[in-house]
Nucleic acid binder design. Structure first.
Lengths: 187, 187
DNA sequence: TGGTACATGTAACATGTTACATGATTAG
DNA sequence: CTAATCATGTAACATGTTACATGTACCA
């Protein structure tokens, strides 16, 4: 019955539908907040996957609601396909990090420009770390018993961002550049 | 002249061609060893990009060599396109980590199975860390003055893998599972 | 009543993946 | 002479991205 093994994006949608029927719009929002830190997906993709899964019987369209909302719900086949998917051996992660390409080809750049770029990215990661830390406090504060699975994936983000910052901070001067003049630390 | 802005994969090929003319085959090998840890590409893709870039004048085909080898070399346009590309602001990284999806949906799995999967992935990361450490010693031992850019990207891999292992080690028992019976640490 | 957020969807294309077909050269 | 490796390439399809078109409902 399953045309082809589910892809992780489609499978995730099925996963979210276990909480109840949802529209494409809701699924995009849910996915971006829940798994968005380590799995990207776009609106287009969600609508496409939903249409495809409706075609192969993994989900069912409900009646249109308020603003033309079109809720989808799991079918038994969808539940089964998800159960099978979640048991499979997950593939290994892919990381595509354009900044590392820029650094790898850094000899073709004026050092100051490379240093600027690196500094900007470092800042972005500092901000991301702050966001994760805030999410973590929020999660711990909100529920009396925080969800272990959600916490584990969030902790991955924290470990990752801390590692990235450590890495930025140990880059040699050739790459990080020196202090940007007027902006010196108290040390 | 540049049809569309270069994609990072194509740009990397141009980057490698700065060292001299190379065939698709060579480029695949070079790319996989030099940037393969944070940028994936396949053979098919390389041949496709080369053909496209030959069409738009960024590279030039040379004469067929020994085993029908078809060397490509940079043109001035290619050099210019690369120079422009490398100066651009690199996009932020994308990480797609299927294991985290499995954990996020872990409530749908028997805990022992989840623990097994997690353990297998932890092992794989331990091995990857070992490989990186070996590469690092090799790089430091080989040249009297190791390349700062190559070392920086390698160090990213080291930081990343260490962080991932730390993360694995602090996962709660619900996810990591208990000790696998006969396999207890001396502590 | 007009702007913003909600909501679905299509189109077009870029990129990534897998599998296969073909042949040359080399090493044993 | 035969298996392994080198080397190019195509085909087919899956997935990802961007841009756009359309209309609804809420709220200030």
């Amino acid at each position: 019955m399953p045309d082809r093994p589910l892809n992780p994006t489609a499978a995730s949608l099925l996963g979210f539908l276990h909480y109840g029927s949802m529209t494409g719009w809701d699924l995009v929002a849910t996915a971006q907040t829940v798994i968005g830190n380590y799995w990207t997906l776009t609106q287009s993709q969600v609508y496409r996957e939903l249409a495809a899964m409706a075609g192969s019987g993994l989900v069912e369209e409900g009646e249109r609601g308020r603003r033309d909302r079109k809720p989808y719900s799991l079918t038994d086949a969808g539940r089964a396909a998800f159960a099978e998917w979640v048991r499979r051996e997950p593939g290994s992660e892919t990381i595509r990090f354009p900044l590392l390409l820029t650094i790898a080809f850094g000899r073709h750049l004026p050092p100051e420009l490379l240093a600027e770029i690196v500094a900007r990215h470092r800042d972005a990661h500092r901000e991301q770390l702050a966001r994760y830390e805030q999410m973590r406090s929020a999660a711990l504060g909100a529920a009396d018993e925080p969800d272990a699975h959600g916490m584990a994936t969030l902790d991955f983000g924290l470990h990752y961002e801390r590692a990235v910052l450590d890495w930025f901070d140990q880059l040699p001067v050739e790459i990080r550049g020196g202090e940007p003049a007027g902006q010196v630390d108290s040390a």
